[in-house]
Design a protein around this nucleic acid. Sequence first.
DNA 1: TTGTATGCGTTATCAC
DNA 2: GTGATAACGCATACAA
Lengths: 345, 345
Amino acid sequence: MLHVAEAARVSVATVSAYINGTTTVSQELSGRIEQAIREIGYKRNAIARSLKLGTTRTIGLTVPHITNPFFTDVVSVIQQAFDRAGYAVMLCCTDEDLNNQDEQIRLLLDRMVDGLIIARVGDGAYLKETVERANVPVVLVDREVDGVDSDRVVLDNHQAVFEAITYLLELGHRRIGYITGAFNITPMRDRMTGYHEALLNAGVAFDQSLVRSGDLHEADGYTAAMQLLSLHDRPTAIFSANNPMVVGAMKAIRDLGLSCPEDVSVICFDDFPWADVFNPQLTTIAQPVQAIGEQTASLLLDRLNGNREAPSRRLVLKGRLMVRNSCRPVQALTSVPTVVAASST
Amino acid sequence: MLHVAEAARVSVATVSAYINGTTTVSQELSGRIEQAIREIGYKRNAIARSLKLGTTRTIGLTVPHITNPFFTDVVSVIQQAFDRAGYAVMLCCTDEDLNNQDEQIRLLLDRMVDGLIIARVGDGAYLKETVERANVPVVLVDREVDGVDSDRVVLDNHQAVFEAITYLLELGHRRIGYITGAFNITPMRDRMTGYHEALLNAGVAFDQSLVRSGDLHEADGYTAAMQLLSLHDRPTAIFSANNPMVVGAMKAIRDLGLSCPEDVSVICFDDFPWADVFNPQLTTIAQPVQAIGEQTASLLLDRLNGNREAPSRRLVLKGRLMVRNSCRPVQALTSVPTVVAASST
DNA sequence: TTGTATGCGTTATCAC
DNA sequence: GTGATAACGCATACAA
């Protein structure tokens, strides 16, 4: 900018005023400045500007895994929204690791992001403190943090799973395997209560041996399904609490020489684009990813636009059961053989 | 930092020296500083630091679509690599729009990113200029830019498609529908030449009516497949140049009451995690996404670590044909009826 | 070992 | 309408 000012034979203050339209500057000087800018190829330094203004027009976004289609979609929508609003977004993936998360949030805060969107990981103790001390607005998405009362948008996980399990029960299933992630994140807890209530509602006893917990990855789903399907009295249906794990579960079904839906019905959380073009066409619980992303962005944008003091808002969206053909009435099942050995990949 | 200095009754210079380990500072003062930092909850302001140092330890990453599994994976790997190296990454999605891309790159450069990774979009004219004027290292991934000789990592697209089409030809297919994106990006051009050469090599005449071009989205694949399969002498196999378009193509096949591989063989570019658990299990060309991401990151990191003058490097990786069960010998096909009308979604 | 002074590129406040 | 100048928070050269 100094160079521009010199080339245009004006002061830096005038250049700044011209660029930002702060004050009206004469035709004369405007022309000289404009020309100097072009000749020099001057670009305003956003870092210096940020330092002075105290705002970076950048937000931080941290999610567990970007390869999980649910987060891919949410990130995509959020990214677009902030792009439109003239904000840049710094993306971090915690890989379900608590230490990564702490580190990344610190990094983001150091860089003076104007706001934070967090799909958290692990237990909430440290995060609670971080969120409360951060002097920037933060909105939580998908996963809440105990005791933290910030803006957030979540799904009605309980209801969604209740519906899904009820659907399975109506098809006559009584032994429904349940593959979940650890209960230290709210969605997993809430989904589990949906399972419980659906069983209770149908008068079906809860069987702890039908519940397997993993770390949300494909491999965990594989292991869990292997164990479930190797049970003496194996389940006739399996529910998976997320997409990566259901892929693992399907592989387990395949490797055991079983098939879906002939031998076992499958239903899972999170929809994906090709769910209805490949077979079995999975019955899923679709989250309104577009709305989730947009609402999340809009909550943060609202704070960024100055609405700092409004009481925190909690948006709860509804999931939708996408019935396809991966579930069958239990009487239609191929007779249920006991799986003897499960030696495979 | 000023507050810390005051609380510890030292100068800001000493605090800075202590934090960065620039000079050794006495036990005495170290203790006071340490305590002051904790009490105040001081965090170093990376923006001010960046302004002074001229480096942000942030890189910019721009891709067409994060929801395309190929880019999802590449972004994920790159993100991890820079995370490990202590860099933040700003993510932009151009949505295959040239204006977005220009704007976003400008935005990134204004923010003084230390480097740029670009999977470009549209024609290369403006981008060429941008890349050449940017005084930060840039590495191109997946798509090259005509006349720009920067670091880049690409796939041997020609070879990969040559193999895939040859595979189809060996199965007896002679009419192979080809769904592509516009030829203003290098991969689409190179893939097309692979198609050409494979046909030539097998002595099969090239038929322009079997080639349909779209904008890389699912809807384009749908339209293209609809047209191809409505041809009087319809193709017995279809190749799709990316993943979103093959999803559309599969939907078209379904909507026409056809099925794969019984009526039409399908093969596509880019692999995805559940390719081998759902049916038909798609035969795909798998890009080494892990390697692509790592090499890309490592090229940029190398520049960032000071190796600025080395001649530009062009890394070419190989694709791998993942043969599954979406392709059949042509004599095994169900008799080929002429599709009369194609009125659907 | 520690402190003083200066500058990184902006914007804002004030004189003129 | 225009131009000095201070300040944003930090790092560094140099003095002490």
